[in-house]
Design a binder for these strands. Structure first.
Length: 817
RNA sequence: GCCGGGGUGGCGGAACGGGAGACGCGGGGGACUUAAAAUCCUCUGUCCUUCGGGGCGUGCGGGUUCGACUCCCGCCCCCGGCACCA
């Protein structure tokens, strides 16, 4: 018999799909007049083109491929594009290391990864391919930046920013993990620099509230975004420094504890510290402390185990609710970046304030108690209806939520404060001092100041430079001729902005460009984008839960506000796949635990690789790679191959189909379809296919009808097609058919799902005792009689009284004795 | 500390309130073969057994239910996010 040769079969079908444009979906000439055939947009996160495709890619794109194939065969038009997130540091660092231009390195890597993707047989509309580093793409990234700028959503300001000393560039807050650069792990340092920002904070509420528009996102991703945005509601309360008219506002989420304030603290960086201590006895000590705090790294300072430090300023602030004087301290446990950089110290009801007060012997006062009046140890931080105010003047006795409302209302009426909302989210720092990114399309004119480059002068092309090495300023600055330009407004001398954009800007709108990838008038036509989007199913790694997904949502909302598109959320359904690990760790070159998909494909074929990566376990869970696991899949494919050839050889088989094997095939159709569609579960359908193939072999052995074997085999081939499209096409053809990818997805015959008989489970006191095959449709009484007659049941019941018999028709009988 | 997810054989995992461990890997035994590979058959949670079967088993302790891996309450442990965020 002809051996199963995946290499030959896969090559043949990949060429066929290419030749027949199998997965190309053209845009309608007039989106508004387009037919109402159902359509969908299945998207996976675009790859960064390093030279090698890795297991994460294989997993990600195979998931999307299975979804796409099934949808297509159900009559849905599926848009499934692919592109490359090609700007960024790895290509640039390679250019520095090995010489050459980052563009050449990127292009080489793209060619390589494209070849590998084709080799996997993924059903992609390759006519829509885009690369973010291509001028025809970044022209529109720049165009969008200018729209943001006009809308006041892109701005430049000097601010304390995070600087990576290794990559020699500033970073967005989102790119700093535990005080370290997300990319290289170097400890970041704070610098005061003038930089470009996107005003994402203006969208903080909408990024939270419009989560309600999402159809299906993993809870953990929503949680991460909520945590990241970090909205907390509270009040701003104004304290006045005694003996001056200096006002110090504080932000608090617990205005109900104002009566418990016994001290006041400023962050060391607070700009009023200097004024307050000028020419006082404490000036020297405070300056020393501030200097000392400034030398502490962010990582050290974030250590909550560290003992609290601080220094008294000699000044007092007046508590607006009771006119008490509170000593003003300076301490680095108060952060300048959050709230107002000043807090009221309420040691009775805040763990940090408690620690500080204990350390420096400050008064600790209780103003909240459990609602039942029971005694409690301080600090008591409960803030629900389980707590109530005490010793708080007119607010005493109110439960905490009401006390907060009442006191905020009172503060507002007295002009002492107001309700406010605090966020953890910071504006998105988008400028980078690196070469391989989209230039920010702005010029600096001595006369006119910042001037945007006019649309008709886009793209601002990257200049050619010799040295990509970062030196603390953008390598673009070395291209002196490029930098020197004329002001678009006054025609006078001007200098180009030399920073480039964060690559996350590029990937914040690529999914829109796919809809209209060759448009040279606009980034995309609104009607076409509204025709295809929002994305119905987005699939990618959970590592993008905050960065990319938050930025893309922000971009979409802004573009919606600017009238560029007609929806507010880009991705209605999100699926985050788990990580593939080996020896308990993420695969990485430095750990030397990488399994190359290429090698697996060479040895077992793309079909086996595709099936195995989905068979490993639930798609959302992290999974440990075992080399031996793929052997079982290889056996399955080989068994199916031999079965297919035998059936094809036997030719047309007529005869009776009413056999158990045919029922099994129909049950498998129902199971596979339900798992894929309703449960979004990809590994259990493969188990069902194993069972079906095993059953076919068994039936053949027991000389089942040839017609039934043929039907079951064709069903298995048809069902495995989304997973193993090459083998499935080949067998489908040999079985005398045409193109399986155009064949409707099978539907189970309801009559075939009906059973003539079933195994009745018999329990005594809820424990399984026996089972018996009985006809379907018997009365409850008849089932009980059948069950009672069983010897193993009788021996269990033996002498005891049957108090009750629970009958679940078609399933079981349970005797309670 | 707050928020989210999870804990089932040697391993990956299945079980959608009703048969715990489907399916696969690994392992034992056997057939075919001069031999090996491939292929095929068979056993494989655990303890007891007179070989009929029986006891125990889904992190721990309670509860709801005729019946709980599944639902509820309280713990323990692991993973992820946030965190001196006031």
């Amino acid at each position: 018999m002809e051996r199963y040769d995946p290499q030959a079969i896969e090559r043949k079908w990949q060429e066929t799909w290419e030749r027949e444009q199998a997965f190309v979906v053209p845009n309608p000439a007039d989106p508004q007049a387009a037919d109402d055939r159902p359509r969908t947009y299945v998207l996976e996160m675009l790859p960064y083109p390093s030279g090698e495709l890795h297991m994460g890619h294989v997993f990600n794109y195979t998931l999307g491929d299975v979804v796409s194939h099934v949808k297509r065969r159900q009559g849905v038009i599926v848009l499934r594009p692919m592109g490359y997130d090609a700007f960024g540091l790895p290509a640039e660092n390679a250019a520095i290391r090995e010489g050459g231009h980052p563009r050449e390195i990127s292009e080489r890597n793209i060619d390589s990864i494209r070849r590998q993707m084709h080799r996997m047989g993924w059903s992609i509309d390759w006519t829509r391919e885009v690369s973010t580093s291509d001028p025809t793409y970044y022209r529109w990234t720049q165009w969008l930046f200018l729209r943001f700028y006009e809308a006041g959503l892109a701005y430049r300001k000097e601010a304390p920013v995070k600087w990576c000393p290794n990559d020699q560039t500033v970073l967005a807050n989102e790119q700093v993990i535990d005080g370290r650069c997300e990319r290289c792990g170097a400890e970041v340092v704070a610098k005061n620099l003038e930089q470009w920002f996107f005003r994402i904070t203006e969208y903080a509420d909408r990024l939270l509230d419009e989560m309600a528009l999402l159809e299906s996102w993993p809870e953990r991703v929503l949680t991460m975004q909520r945590n990241w945005i970090g909205r907390s509601t509270g009040a701003e309360v104004v304290f006045r420094v005694e003996g001056t008219d200096v006002e110090l506002p504080v932000f608090t989420t617990r205005p109900d504890t104002l009566f418990g304030a016994t001290f006041f603290v400023l962050a060391p960086e607070h700009q009023l510290v200097g004024d307050l201590i000028r020419s006082t006895d404490t000036e020297r000590a405070v300056i020393d402390y501030v200097g000392h705090a400034g030398a502490t790294t962010a990582v050290e300072r974030a250590d909550t185990e560290r003992e609290k430090t601080g220094v008294f300023t000699g000044r007092y602030a007046r508590n607006p609710v009771n006119d008490e004087l509170l000593p003003i301290w300076v301490s680095d446990y108060v952060l300048m970046e959050y709230g107002t950089g000043a807090i009221m110290g309420v040691p009775g009801h805040d763990a940090r304030d408690f620690e500080f007060a204990t350390r420096f012997g400050l008064e600790i006062r209780q103003v909240v108690e459990p609602a039942d009046g029971s005694p409690v140890e301080l600090p008591y931080v409960e803030r629900t209806t389980g707590a109530r105010s005490m010793s708080s003047g007119q607010f005493s006795g109110l439960e905490t939520p009401e006390a907060i409302d009442a006191i905020v209302e009172w503060l507002e009426s007295e002009g002492l404060g107001k309700a406010t909302v605090g966020y953890r989210l910071r504006d998105w720092l988008l400028s980078r001092q690196r070469y391989w990114g989209a230039p920010i399309p702005v010029v600096h004119c001595e006369v006119c100041g910042l001037v945007p480059v006019p649309d008709d002068q886009l793209p601002v092309l990257l200049p050619e430079v010799d040295d990509y090495k970062p030196k603390g300023r953008s390598p673009l600055a070395a291209a002196e001729e490029w930098v020197r330009t004329t002001c678009p407004e006054c025609g006078g001398p001007a200098r180009r902005e030399t920073d480039t954009m964060d690559t996350f800007v590029d990937s914040s709108w690529y999914f829109l460009r796919y809809a209209d990838p060759r448009n040279d008038q606009l980034p995309f036509d609104r009607e076409i984008v509204d025709f295809w989007l929002p994305v119905q199913q987005y699939i990618g790694g959970v590592e993008h839960a905050i960065l990319h997904l938050l930025y893309a949502r922000f971009f979409t909302k802004v573009m919606n506000d600017l009238g560029l598109l007609g929806f507010r959320e880009p991705f209605l359904r999100l699926f985050t796949q788990g990580m593939i690990t080996r020896n308990g760790a993420k695969m990485s070159k430095s750990k030397g635990n990488v399994v190359s998909p290429d090698a697996m494909v060479e040895r077992y074929g793309a079909d086996a690789m595709r099936l195995y990566i989905l068979y490993m376990g639930p798609a959302e869970a992290d999974k440990e790679w075992h080399d031996s696991g793929i052997e079982g899949i290889a056996r399955l494919l080989d068994r199916l191959w031999r079965l297919g050839l035998e059936v094809a050889d036997a030719g047309r088989a007529d005869g009776d189909l009413g056999l158990e094997l045919v029922r099994t095939a129909h049950r498998t159709i129902a199971k596979v379809t339900d798992d894929l569609e309703r449960r979004f579960q990809f590994h259990t359908p493969i188990a069902a296919l194993f069972e079906l193939v095993n059953d076919i072999y068994r039936a053949k052995e027991e000389s089942g009808s040839e017609a039934a074997v043929r039907f079951a085999t064709e069903t298995a081939v048809s069902l495995i097609q989304p997973y193993a499209p090459h083998l499935a096409e080949e067998l489908w053809q040999r079985l005398g058919h045409e193109r399986l990818w155009q064949e409707p997805w099978p539907e189970p015959d309801p009559a075939m799902l009906e059973q003539a008989s079933f195994d009745l489970v018999v329990q005594v006191n809820g424990k399984l005792r026996d089972r018996v095959t009985v006809a379907v449709g018997l009365s409850d009484e008849a089932l009980v009689e059948h069950a009672k007659a069983l010897p193993r049941v009788a021996s269990q019941v033996d002498g005891k009284e049957i108090r009750r018999a629970i009958v679940v028709p078609g399933k079981l009988v349970n005797f309670v004795v």
